[in-house]
Nucleic acid binder design. Structure first.
Lengths: 341, 341
DNA sequence: CGAAATTTCGGAAACGTTTACGATGAATTT
DNA sequence: AAATTCATCGTAAACGTTTCCGAAATTTCG
């Protein structure tokens, strides 16, 4: 509302030129100490802030990156964002944020908004469909570097930061096997969910390694991977048969929480009668009773790494970078059988 | 990396002036249909995007708001942010985000960055100390409108969106009383935590209404309000005495989760032997066993309301707006005694 | 003391837009 | 046929900076 004050205001107040004021404020060398001090003081007095728009326009450097996430209130993504913002702040970058809600059209809008705002790079966790999609082409034709987070595409030219999802699932299932569980079920996501499929493959690999026959009746697909309800319903189906599984690996912690509910309802003890392992090491996993064993996903570190990669791409012009975070299992109470046998 | 293409590039390619190109792209009237079409086509072909910096600078209108939150990966705040971004997107505003981490110095840096980027308004959930502080003065002297979220200051001129915290606590405690609990404890935050104190007052008010004497030994203060550990330790202290409380109201769900742990450790049944009510209706409250009764905090709605207020302040120049969201109790299993008595 | 070097500053152009204004030519009117 | 209108376009200034270049004023040097 109030008039923005600019270099001109300071200049007029002190009877010097705009150029001189600029020089003083930017610590240039060819300026007298006294005038500089006077200018600094006046600037402070008038509460001057440089207009970032004018500066960027003139210098043609826009210290801005864009971040696109499917959902901002999803715990994992919010930690990724935190990691990005940590590093971005240190490097004096402005961070623009867009929430795609897995909507391709929205994702495109965000990218175009980012391009209008001259982002020098983008970190994106694409919606599932983008994986094969063309929204990224918008960035490519503009040669705007981007880093994929958590969900790499099948294009081998892209830089990405991801988590070793198959191995995370493998470790989870192997752990269950080693604990002595015999019939291990898996509650997955829908068929085209990239993340779910990656974990599915790890599940199968672990079974194969220990010569456990794959039993399709032990695998169920849920629609909503972020809510417990599907896990609840599907595990009820799985547990209400004669030859029921004695352990269930879940595609997310939230799904696992649904399995807890079903177990309680049926009076099935966890972990003695039913082992459970989730995925994400989200907040709830520590709070469930018994505490939930799960696969860790270090969101902050992944975010920080993504920003570091982006910076390398921007500055160094490095073409392709990738990092796969090593999977790590967090063993808690829900999968410990050893002491009871 | 690639050269940005501007109006000039289109103009040169078509042998017209920059002005004409601008006119064509902005749907001005005094332009020939054919040239317009040619320009539109060329712009599309070259993948032109207007430079938002130049536009804003020239038009002197910056459709940007800033949001400052203590923590971005805190569930409640992430939902507030989601609400803000929903509305901001509809209104075509750019959203800048800063994470203060309850650090006053950082908060100031963010505000200055925002001012450099010419935000037309700010939504801020101030760190505790700012409540009495001067960071907001930076905005005031610049006449940049701002809306406080969740944590109003004691300055009666400020616009804010908050939650009726005292009443939320009151409802929680009243509910426990009505269920038949007799000795109701409270685990609060540290002494200067605004939110904690608001809830504390509601606790006391409920006791007073039902003529239950206030017993200081039933009130404990924790440091970390967002983690279960303090709740765990403090409730152990409270439960390990002869005349222990039969219900505990907690300043947050996370603290309540710590009480669960202590109860399990001591073999105390929830809710029959110990009633528990938390605060925030966070993710975990639905997943705990038994499910946790808690006070709802509608983050998305509060965020949307905050943006609506900000917009009114910006557009209409309305001076002061406030809204207190009505408290609502979510009754789950952890506080139900009625059926057992 | 004159010339050269140095210090300190201002003028002007530029970044990519938008917009007020004027210019041009064609079409219409008288 | 001259005068007027109208449609279409270009010129130039402006937004708030930075920076190149040159101009004074001052100092240093031979």
């Amino acid at each position: 509302m109030a008039k923005r004050i600019g270099l001109k205001d300071i200049a007029e107040a002190l009877n010097v030129s705009v150029t001189t004021v600029s020089r003083a404020l930017n610590n240039k060398f060819d300026i007298n100490q006294e005038t500089r001090n006077a200018i600094l003081q006046k600037a402070d007095e008038l509460n001057y802030r440089p207009n970032a728009y004018a500066v960027s326009l003139r210098k043609n450097e826009y210290f801005t990156i864009g971040v696109i996430l499917p959902s901002i209130d999803h715990y994992f993504f919010s930690t990724v964002l935190k990691g990005i913002m940590n590093k971005a702040h240190q490097a004096n970058y402005l961070v623009l944020i867009g929430e795609s809600n897995h909507d391709l059209e929205r994702e495109k809008e965000i990218i175009e908004q980012f391009m209008s705002h001259c982002v020098t790079g983008v970190i994106i966790s694409p919606s599932d469909k983008t994986t094969y999609g063309n929204n990224l082409d918008l960035l490519k034709t503009r040669r705007i570097p981007f880093i994929l987070v958590d969900r790499p595409t099948n294009d081998s030219n892209h830089s990405f930061v991801r988590y070793d999802d198959p191995n995370g699932a493998f470790l989870a299932v192997e752990h269950l096997i080693q604990q002595g569980y015999k019939r291990i079920g898996f509650i997955k996501g829908y068929d085209y969910c990239v993340i779910s499929n990656a974990r599915y493959s790890g599940y199968k690999k672990a079974l194969a390694k220990y010569d456990i026959p794959f039993d399709e009746s032990l695998v169920k697909s849920c629609i909503h991977i972020d809510k417990p309800n599907d896990g609840y319903e599907l595990s009820k189906q799985m547990l209400f048969v004669k030859n029921r599984p004695d352990a269930i690996f879940c595609v997310t912690d939230n799904v696992a929480s649904g399995v807890y509910q079903a177990a309680i309802e049926y009076g099935i003890n966890v972990p003695t009668e039913l082992g459970i392992v989730g995925y994400s090491n989200s907040q709830i996993s520590k709070h469930l009773t018994p505490t939930l064993s799960t696969v860790e996903q270090p969101g902050i570190e992944m975010g920080e790494q993504a920003f570091a990669f982006l910076q390398q791409n921007i500055i160094g012009g490095v073409s392709r970078l990738e990092r796969t975070f090593e999977a790590r299992l967090v063993i808690r109470q829900s999968s410990i059988l050893q002491n009871f046998k």
